[in-house]
Design a protein around this nucleic acid. Structure first.
Length: 491
RNA sequence: UCCUGCGUAGCUCAGCGGUAGAGCGGGUGGCUGUUAACCACUAGGUCGUUGGUUCGAAUCCAACCGCAGGAGCCA
């Protein structure tokens, strides 16, 4: 990794910080003994001055905590630079790691040399005090420097690693399904059209506010299309994933997906990451087992590897976080059929805003009742009426339900949606016709049933929703580095 | 897209018919092995925009804009 080449400030033109290798704050705070010379690089979180010296807290993002630096007034650039440092300034400090005389920390650095890479002026927007998430969203480029967002994005990194680890340990093959796709009607929601800038632009966005009346229905000519056909940003890699599962047996995808839906909620974003395993020779029961195992695995991994960050969430974001995570880790998930779930809701004695009846979708309030009040743990609901599920799900022998399943978790609702796929060619063709889909658009998908078809199953897990669940952060916009939602794509 | 709420200093908010306030942050000075440090002084605002009601509007009304929460859709 290349080290930045410091440009020494005029007041300290003597040298670069040192030839010694820098240590992260995390490593220094976990030291077991004092060290005569260490180098740390990071950003000023706070500074407290006295006449004879300053205390500077430096954070480098390696962990939640900052390290305290004692900068004596005899340092050559003390008056010219150090006393003028603001929160946000970038520094390198070379000095001695010693046991702290103060109460708040075990170790501190007595500075021998402080190199100011870049000061920050008084307009630096982050204060020591707490900020609202709304304000921090408006400075998405600076918010990773706050305690909360540093924790969120460290956990995000670890969680992504754990996803790969989970599947790789089990022999799943990672498949990169396309981001630009020609499949335009998977029933997964509105899509973003991909077009050349400056022309040939089809607006599939629903409201059509910018479309001239005469052009409202006009699709770009095929010749204008870069790909020779309409293309979109993917809403799911599932269909392509099925193709690979029908060759490599167990696969997973993990990548960005896009939805052009005009939803304004704390759980929806226009761009988000999804994990989609697909298993050949697998039925719905195996699918549910994997989903449950995975959720538990990710929760356990986070508890074991992100303890410091989770502490902050438990303290400031969600006081019940640790209870909930430990509960999910230890207890089996409840598992009920859709029919049973309807029965539970009907005999609950609760009055719901939306009606509960067989054949109707479970609403948010129903899902929340099941997981938060009735079972008080994650719930897998399976075997839904075929009418309320997409064309590719496998018809059960009762001819009324399909082999679908959703995992519901407290606080979030649906976190996993999956199914066993219809592997029988004739039934799949019937479904396409029933849903009004053109068989020609799915010829390659039907080929998977023509040649060596097998029972197979998979699911989709929203990565950000999982992240919300393990951190307790209540808004999806605060677990994505630069979130995209309707009307907002800054940065 | 629908419903609800909120837009006052850099940030968080109070003021809710009579001419702009606090805390934090910033600046200056002081003090202290400090740790969301402390003490004193100080700068900082077309009260979201436009229009209306009124002798007078941050305050009441309307429209618009922005943000947030809930619903639907879903992950």
């Amino acid at each position: 990794m290349p080290t930045p080449s410091p440009s020494p400030s005029p007041a300290d033109s003597s040298s670069s910080p040192s030839a010694i290798a820098p240590s992260s704050v995390k490593i220094l705070l976990n030291a077991t003994e004092a060290a005569p010379e260490v180098l740390v690089q990071g950003w000023v979180r706070t500074k407290r001055d006295s006449k004879a010296f300053s205390f500077i807290e430096i954070n480098d993002g390696s962990c939640l905590k900052s390290i305290q630096v004692v900068a004596d007034a005899v340092l050559p650039n003390y008056q010219s630079e150090i006393v003028h440092l603001h929160t946000g300034a970038a520094l390198a400090v070379r000095g001695e790691l010693v046991a702290s005389q103060g109460q708040g920390q075990a170790w501190e650095i007595v500075a021998r040399e402080v190199t100011v890479y870049g000061n920050a002026d008084e307009s630096y927007p982050l204060q020591k005090k707490g900020h609202t998430p709304e304000f921090l969203r408006s400075i998405a480029h600076l918010r990773p420097r706050s305690n909360l967002f540093g924790c969120v994005f460290r956990v995000r990194s670890r969680l992504a690693y754990a996803v790969h680890q989970f599947f790789q340990e089990r022999g799943f093959i990672y498949v990169h399904t396309p981001i630009i796709t020609g499949s335009d009607c998977e029933g997964a929601g509105e899509m973003f059209r991909v077009s050349l800038s400056g022309g040939g632009n089809g607006n599939t966005n629903g409201d059509g506010s910018n479309t001239k009346p005469g052009d409202a229905k006009k699709e770009p000519e095929a010749a204008e299309e870069f790909f020779g056909r309409p293309t979109f940003l993917t809403v799911s890699g599932q269909l392509e994933g099925e193709a690979f599962a029908c060759a490599l047996s167990n696969i997973y995808t993990f990548g960005p997906t896009f939805r052009a839906e005009n939803s304004h909620t704390t759980r929806h974003a226009s761009e988000f990451w999804m994990i989609e395993p697909e298993m050949a020779f697998c039925n719905l029961a195996g699918d549910m087992d994997l989903a449950e195992e995975m959720v538990k695995y990710l929760v356990t991994d986070t508890l074991e590897h992100c303890a410091g960050d989770l502490e902050l969430f438990g303290k400031f974001v969600d006081k019940d976080l640790h209870n909930r995570l430990n509960f999910v880790r230890e207890r089996p998930f409840a598992r009920v059929s859709y029919t049973e779930a309807i029965g539970i809701l009907q005999s609950s004695g609760k009055t719901f805003e939306y009606p509960v009846a067989y054949g109707l979708n479970l609403q948010s309030e129903h899902e929340r009742y099941l997981t938060e009040q009735h079972f008080k743990c994650p719930v897998t609901v399976h075997d839904y009426p075929k009418e309320i599920k997409p064309f590719y799900m496998r018809l059960n022998d009762d001819d009324k339900t399909v082999a679908a399943m959703d995992v519901l978790v407290p606080g979030i609702g649906e976190i996993v949606g999956g199914s066993q796929r219809e592997e029988r060619l004739d039934l799949l063709e019937k479904n396409l016709a029933h849903y009004g889909l053109d068989e020609a658009d799915y010829s390659w998908y039907l080929d998977l049933r023509r040649y060596g078809s097998v029972p197979h199953a998979g699911f989709g897990l929203g990565f950000e929703r999982m992240l919300m669940f393990v951190t307790g952060v209540p808004n999806i916009r605060d677990v994505i580095p630069f979130p995209r939602v309707p009307g907002w794509a800054e940065f």
